[in-house]
Design a protein around this nucleic acid. Structure first.
Length: 580
DNA sequence: AGTTTCGGCGCC
DNA sequence: AAAGGGCGCCGAAACT
C-alpha cells in the first residue's frame, strides 16, 4: 500500500507537506514544517514523495542523510506527457503546466545551469521556479488524468515512475562519486604521454610524434590541425577529404602511423589528461553530474568530465576503496534483446530467451555461423544502415526474423513520413523540424504580445537567436529532427530500440537500488547498459545476485511476460579496467 | 573579445 | 558517390 505525500520546499528552509489519497487529492490539512529534511525524516512510512523537482529537493535531503523510497517528479512527468501529447519542446515547468491548466500566459522555462568543474551540486541554488503546494497539487491531479488519456496508461504511469526513480539514483550517484585514484591516473598518463614540459605545452610523447609526422611530410605540420594535415597530404599527392581515422588509415604514407598515434594520445591528453584530473577529481572521487533522461531517447547524459566517454585505458584509475570491490555489470547484447521484446518476433524472442551469445544464435540460424556478419546485420537493422555488408545481410535477417525487421522498418517509415514514434513505455520522439507550428506557437506564447519572449531552444532552454519565421526550417531543432527525411527515418528506427532499452534500464536501476537500500553498497556508475556498484567485499556476491534478479524483474515489468532474457556479464574487481 | 560552430574522437 | 543511431568534450575556426 503506498503512502503518498506531496512536498513543496519553502524559502526559509522549511517545507509544506500534505498526505494524498489514491486519486492524488489531499486527504488531510497542509502541514508547515520548519525543516525540509526533518519533514521527510519524520515520516518514514511515506513510500512516495510527490514534488516539483528532484534536482531541487533530493540533494538537500541527501546532504542531511535522508533517503526516500520513491518519488514522483512533476516537471519530469510534464516533459514526458507533453512529448506524448505531441507538444515536445513546450515549457515544461510546473508553472507553465499550471498556466496551461488555468489558461494564463505560459512562462518560458528558465535557462539551465551547466556544470562547472569541481562545483558543488545545486544545494543552494534551487533550479527552476517554485510553486505553492496548492498549485502543485492542481498540476499533479491533472497529470494523473493525462496519464489516463495516453495510448497505454499503465505503461505511461510506469514510465514517469521509472524516470523519477532514475532521478533518485542519479542524485545518489552524484553524491557518491566514482572512486578514482589520482595516482594511478597520473601513472597512466605518464606511461602514455611522457613527461610534461613547463609552460603547459604538449607532453614529450606528443611532441615526438608531431616531429615524426613533420619529418615524414618533409615540412612542419601540426597534426592537431585538420586543415594543416589535409594540405600536407595534398602536397604529397594524396587527396583526402578529411583527417578522420577511417579515411586516413588506408592511406599509404609514412606520416599515417605517427599521425594516428598522435590523434589517439592527443585525445587522451585534452579530454582526460592532467587538467581533467585537476578539474574533476576531489578526495578520491570523480564527481560528474548524472542526469536521468537527458537525451530524447531517454538515455542519461552527464554534465562535466565526459563521464560516459571514459577511454578504456583511463579506467585503470577507477579503483575500489580498501576492502571494497567494484561489481561491474554489463548487459549482454541489450539492443537485439530489446528488439525481440518490443517486436514480439517469435524467432528472435526464442533466440533472446537464451542467456548465451545472441549474435552467435542469430548467425547459426541465418548466417551459417558467421557471428560477425550476424552482428553487423542486427546492428544495421537497428541503426538503419543503408549500405555495405549490413544491407546485404539484412535480407537474410528479414527472412528469419520478419516481425523484428518489420518493426524497425515501420518506425523508419513513420519517421520519414513525419509521424511520431514511441518507446515501449511511451516516451515519444520529438517532431521533425518543419512538421509542426513554429516555435512561438509551440511555446504557447500569445502571438500578439509584444512582451513575449523569444522562442527558446527546447533542449537547452536558451533563446535560439532565430526568428519564429525561420525556426521551422532551420536550426532550432537539433540534427536528429532535421527535415532530411531519410535521416529522420534512421533516427526514428533507432529511437524505438534505444529508447525502449532506456525504459528497461530505468526499471533495472530502480530494482537494483532497492536491493542496495539496506546494504553499504552504493551505485556509483551507469552507462546505458552497464552499472557499477561499489560495495564491501563481503557484499559482492549478493550484489551479483541482485543484478540478476533486478534484470529479470525489469524485463517483466517493462515488457510484460515474454521469453526474452537480459543476462549480464558481471565481474567483481578492485579496478574497473580488470572487468573486461 | 566573446560566442557559436566545426572537426574529430571517446563511449554506448 | 556515399549512404548508422544517441551523446559530451576539446581546441580551432568562424562568426558577431
Amino acid at each position: 500500500m503506498t503512502d503518498r505525500w506531496a512536498l513543496a520546499p519553502a524559502e526559509d528552509g522549511g517545507a509544506e507537506v500534505v498526505p494524498l489519497g489514491p486519486d492524488g487529492l489531499p486527504t488531510g490539512p497542509v502541514r508547515r514544517e520548519a525543516d525540509l529534511a526533518e519533514a521527510v525524516r519524520s515520516r518514514p512510512d511515506v513510500t512516495r514523495w510527490v514534488w516539483r523537482s528532484t534536482a531541487e529537493v533530493y540533494p538537500r535531503l541527501l546532504a542531511a542523510g535522508v533517503r526516500v523510497e520513491r518519488c514522483y517528479d512533476i516537471e519530469d512527468a510534464e516533459t514526458l506527457l507533453l512529448g506524448h501529447e505531441g507538444h515536445y519542446g513546450e515549457p515544461r515547468s510546473a508553472a507553465a503546466a499550471l498556466a496551461r491548466l488555468r489558461g494564463g500566459p505560459v512562462p518560458p522555462d528558465p535557462p539551465q545551469r551547466s556544470a562547472e568543474p569541481g562545483a558543488q551540486s545545486s544545494l543552494f541554488e534551487p533550479e527552476g521556479v517554485r510553486l505553492p503546494l496548492a498549485d502543485l497539487l492542481a498540476v499533479y491531479a491533472e497529470q494523473q488524468r493525462r496519464h489516463e488519456r495516453t495510448a497505454h496508461p499503465d505503461r505511461m504511469r510506469l514510465l514517469t515512475a521509472a524516470e523519477s526513480a532514475g532521478m533518485l539514483v542519479a542524485a545518489e550517484m552524484n553524491r557518491a562519486g566514482l572512486p578514482w585514484s589520482a595516482d594511478v591516473h597520473r601513472r597512466v598518463l605518464h606511461e602514455l604521454l611522457g613527461e610534461r614540459y613547463a609552460g603547459g605545452g604538449e607532453p614529450r610523447r606528443l611532441a615526438e610524434l608531431a616531429d615524426e609526422v613533420s619529418a615524414a611530410f618533409g615540412r612542419r605540420v601540426r597534426p592537431d590541425l585538420p586543415a594543416d594535415v589535409v594540405k600536407a597530404f595534398a602536397r604529397a599527392g594524396i587527396k583526402v577529404g578529411s583527417t578522420r581515422r577511417w579515411e586516413i588509415q588506408s592511406v599509404d604514407h609514412p606520416a599515417v602511423k605517427p599521425l594516428l598515434e598522435y590523434k589517439k594520445l592527443y585525445r587522451i591528453w585534452v579530454a582526460h589528461g592532467w587538467s581533467w584530473l585537476q578539474d574533476w577529481v576531489r578526495e578520491g572521487r570523480f564527481r560528474p553530474e548524472f542526469l536521468a533522461g537527458g537525451t530524447v531517447t531517454g538515455r542519461w547524459v552527464t554534465n562535466g568530465g565526459g563521464a560516459l566517454q571514459i577511454p578504456k585505458v583511463i579506467r585503470r584509475a577507477v579503483v575500489a576503496d580498501p576492502g571494497w570491490r567494484l561489481v561491474v555489470a554489463d548487459a549482454d547484447q541489450m539492443e537485439p534483446r530489446v528488439l525481440a521484446a518490443i517486436s514480439r518476433d517469435p524467432g528472435l524472442m526464442e533466440v533472446a530467451g537464451r542467456e548465451t551469445d545472441l549474435y552467435q544464435s542469430v548467425s547459426d540460424r541465418a548466417f551459417s555461423g558467421d557471428r560477425a556478419q550476424a552482428k553487423l546485420a542486427v546492428l544495421g537493422a537497428v541503426y538503419g544502415q543503408t549500405s555495405g555488408d549490413g544491407l546485404k545481410n539484412l535480407a537474410a535477417l528479414r527472412r528469419r526474423f520478419p516481425r523484428a525487421v518489420a518493426y524497425v522498418d515501420e518506425a523508419a517509415r513513420a519517421g520519414e513520413e513525419g509521424r511520431l514514434v514511441r518507446t515501449w513505455l511511451g516516451r515519444t520522439c520529438p517532431p521533425a523540424a518543419g512538421a509542426t507550428q513554429d516555435a512561438t506557437e509551440e511555446a504557447g506564447l500569445p502571438q500578439e504580445d509584444p512582451t513575449a519572449e523569444r522562442p527558446t531552444d527546447p533542449v537547452t532552454g536558451q533563446p535560439t537567436g532565430h526568428s519564429a519565421r525561420d525556426s521551422a526550417d532551420q536550426g532550432w531543432m537539433p540534427g536528429y529532427a532535421s527535415g532530411n527525411s531519410r535521416a529522420r527515418g534512421r533516427f526514428a528506427r533507432n529511437f524505438v530500440v534505444q529508447g525502449s532499452a532506456a525504459d528497461w534500464a530505468l526499471l533495472l536501476l530502480a530494482a537494483l537500488r532497492r536491493t542496495c537500500r539496506d546494504m553499504a553498497a552504493e551505485l556509483v556508475f551507469f552507462q546505458h547498459d552497464e552499472v557499477i556498484v561499489h560495495c564491501p567485499e563481503e557484499e559482492a556476491d549478493a550484489i551479483v545476485e541482485a543484478i540478476r534478479e533486478a534484470s529479470e524483474l525489469a524485463g517483466r515489468l517493462t515488457f510484460g511476460e515474454t521469453p526474452v532474457r537480459f543476462p549480464f556479464t558481471t565481474a567483481v574487481v578492485e579496478c574497473y579496467a580488470d572487468a573486461k
